[in-house]
Simulated scan of single mutants.
Amino acid sequence: MNTTPLSPGWLPEGTVYGTLLNFRHELALWAPHMNEAPYQAPPKAPVLYVKTANTFTPTGQPIALPSGASVEVAASLGLVMGAGGVAGIVLLNDVAVAHDSYYRPPVRTRCVDGFLGLGPECVPLDALGGLDALRELEIELHRNGVHKQTTRMSEWVRDAVTLLTDVREFMSLRPGDVLMTGTDCLPEGGRELVHAGDTVEITAPGFKPVVHSFVAEESA
């Protein structure tokens, strides 16, 4: 695994939105619980959350782990909006404090300082063959040089076109905004956990690697 720090070349210019339950396996695992309180029905629209600007960590820079927290990582594609629609795609490492519920994911688990690892570039959509071609992509996640997960876009519940269409039914996306297409879980339902001293590398065809090391949070 290449752990050489890469020069950051891209930062989000708008709001970053994450998407939950957009992979078939995780949706199937949650299905038995979706008729329980509080909503008593499966979600009909995409379930979104926000990754705030304090979470942005360029590739090659370390991410600090809060003391005592169980922290998970997962690979995602981000649709970067331009004036006429999707302008490009970025590879991301979505970091979160591990939690059980998919209902209204709290800011405190998703928006910890540094908890969105950014790819070094926004790849033009045309270079990847358009939105439909994204369904053929596979993303590899390695921790400390060991392969831990392959995320296949063919397993999306909503492909990129459908996700965009459904999100735009209830909100606008502006140039510079980023819509993440979701993260997949591991076979047992969780996501890869990281600890201080770990290095995570995320790769996909057509993208430069996303590399982040994890360190213990400094005491105040």
Rank of each mutant, 00 (worst) to 15 (best):
H142G: 00
H25M: 01
V146Q: 14
E13S: 13
H212K: 05
H33W: 09
G145S: 07
W10D: 13
A133D: 04
S101K: 05
D177A: 03
P120F: 12
V95Y: 09
F56P: 00
V211P: 01
T181M: 12
F170G: 01
Y39T: 10
D159P: 00
A96M: 14
M34S: 00
P209W: 08
G114K: 07
V80L: 09
L125K: 03
P175D: 04
Y103M: 11
K44Q: 15
L125F: 06
L164E: 02
E192I: 13
G197I: 02
E36C: 00
G78Y: 02
L173H: 02
V194Q: 08
R174T: 13
L77Y: 13
G68V: 03
D94I: 00
T199H: 12
T199C: 15
E121Q: 15
R158M: 10
P8Y: 13
H142P: 00
V47Y: 00
E72Q: 12
P8H: 08
G114Q: 08
A204G: 07
A204Q: 13
D113A: 02
Y102D: 00
A87K: 14
A96E: 12
V123P: 03
G14S: 02
T165V: 01
Y103C: 10
C185W: 04
G84N: 15
K44V: 11
G114Y: 06
Q61N: 14
A127N: 08
L21F: 10
T15S: 07
G130R: 03
F214I: 05
T199P: 03
C111G: 09
P58H: 04
G88A: 06
V95T: 11
M81Q: 13
P38T: 06
G119E: 09
Q61D: 11
L118G: 01
A83L: 10
L92T: 05
V86D: 06
R24P: 01
D126C: 02
